[in-house]
Design a protein around this nucleic acid. Structure first.
Length: 421
RNA sequence: GUGAGCGUAGCUCAACAGGUUAGAGCACCGGAUUGUGGAUCCGGAGGUUGGGGGUUCGAAACCCCUCGUUCACCCCA
């Protein structure tokens, strides 16, 4: 290898990152808690492949969505198939439900999953190219009570994780009956005010007029205040659903803000949409977001089964969760000499079988060095094995925190380590 | 995709206004200390200053390109 080649290191791909042991511990804690929490609400895990046919997302996520238009990791495999690393989870679940006829199970069905998603986006705070989502979905329940239930569930999960300072935003985007009328009216109003809008908003008029509500320009904000709101255009069914949804949120005591400009960038939503945001996340402030999608299964050729769910950004969540220190119980075996090492190997085998975390020093260092090492790795206990100990079959067990030390046989040591004595 | 800021040791940062051999703390390794850790003291290793080109007697510093990173726009989890 030449000098030049040596310099060029292979690095993690832009927008991806390694999760090192200290942080991985936090992931494990949070994931364990999340899974138990979901199961308590009757959710069951469903795992689907990380890649699917590109067509699935084109149809499911929507041809006009930014995700499909410019953010997908798509590639052609050796068999000539166009595949895509999933940018979101919902289409995969819907595909699995239809493929395995899961809709024949008693409804509503509740599923959850935690795993990596992929979007070719420019990275910034709270946004990565490989990121993780907790995805939960409920199928086959039209009642607005279930809309409220999943918001309550999401909110409860956050408080269980001690995440503070969050706001619940809700909206209804109507359905295929009422939405076209609204869009038409909104475009019309925007057209009338065209000259007073910024160039950005003029562009949004044709692409997604709803985003005009998000403009940061003072003048645009003032103008959009006067624009019609989707909630004034809801058909009777959607309006009733939204009212029920909100009254159930009140029942749960969940403060929420109706945000008529809350628009999910995904094309498939109907009726309820919601987000939980935190001001501590920066520009990407949504911890989770989701909504109802009553037409998707039908659109994929399945039966008329409605769906609702949300996706939670795990990285964003973790940035708000304080690291919890868990008590550890690590035993470090200090061996003095070759014979002691062999004795130590057997002792380690014994302790491992008894479900004790224990490490053995293989380098023949002096006692002082080995103690120092035990201290560094955070050992709770040190077992010292030397010539005397081998003869007597009794070892020096030292508690590193208190400094207390006594000579014990291995069974006794086990009991002390376990806290039984 | 657009814009702005930043790239110096494993980490956090120094190095006046371009001037000798690029420094410090933490971390790492060794010693003081051959059967007792943490503290202290002493020592060691670790860098072509992200990469490439240019300006200059001389570049970590100035200019250009490139890559990476951070933040914002956009969009979203």
């Amino acid at each position: 290898m030449s000098r030049k080649e040596k310099k060029k290191q292979v690095a993690a791909i832009k927008g991806t990152k390694d999760i090192l042991p200290l942080e991985a511990r936090k992931w494990q804690q949070v994931e364990t808690l999340i899974k138990a929490y979901c199961e308590r609400y009757g959710y069951r895990e469903i795992r689907t492949p990380v890649f699917e046919s590109t067509e699935l997302f084109q149809k499911g996520t929507g041809e006009t969505s930014d995700i499909v238009m410019k953010e997908m990791y798509s590639f052609v495999d050796k068999g000539g198939r166009s595949l895509t690393l999933r940018p979101e989870y919902t289409p995969s679940i819907v595909r699995a439900i239809i493929e395995h006829r899961l809709y024949l199970q008693p409804q509503p069905m509740r599923y959850y999953y935690i795993g990596p998603m992929f979007r070719y986006d420019k990275p910034q705070k709270g946004r990565y190219r490989q990121f993780h989502q907790l995805d939960i979905e409920v199928f086959g329940e039209k009642d607005a009570a279930v809309d409220a239930e999943i918001v309550e569930m999401a909110s409860g999960l956050l408080s269980q994780l001690k995440v503070k300072g969050t706001d619940i935003l809700v909206n209804s985007v109507g359905c295929r009956k009422c939405r076209p009328g609204y869009h038409k009216e909104l475009r019309h109003q925007a057209e009338l005010a065209r000259d007073s809008l910024c160039s950005d908003c003029q562009r949004k008029m044709s692409t997604n007029p709803l985003r005009i509500f998000d403009c940061k320009e003072e003048s645009c904000r003032e103008i959009s205040q006067g624009f019609p709101k989707i909630t004034d255009f809801l058909c009777r069914e959607c309006d009733e659903h939204f009212k029920n949804f909100r009254s159930y949120l009140d029942l749960y005591g969940l403060k929420h803000k109706v945000e008529p400009r809350l628009v999910r960038g995904l094309d498939y939503y109907t009726k309820t949409t919601f987000e939980i945001v935190s001001t501590e996340l920066g520009a990407q402030d949504a911890i989770l977001g989701g909504g109802r999608y009553d037409d998707m299964i039908k659109d994929f050729g399945g039966p008329d089964v409605c769906g609702i769910g949300f996706a939670l950004g795990v990285e964003r969540l973790l940035s708000l969760v304080p690291q919890k220190k868990e008590p550890e119980n690590i035993v470090y075996l200090v061996c003095l000499g070759e014979e002691a090492k062999k004795e130590g190997m057997l002792l380690a085998q014994y302790l491992h079988k008894e479900n004790i975390e224990c490490l053995l020093e293989y380098k023949s260092r002096n006692l002082s060095k080995q103690m120092s090492r035990a201290n560094k790795i955070g050992a709770t206990w040190v077992l010292i094995i030397g010539e005397d100990e081998i003869k007597k079959k009794r070892f020096q067990l030292k508690n590193m925190a208190s400094g207390e030390q006594k000579e014990v046989a291995r069974e006794k040591a086990l009991n002390i380590i376990r806290g039984n004595i």
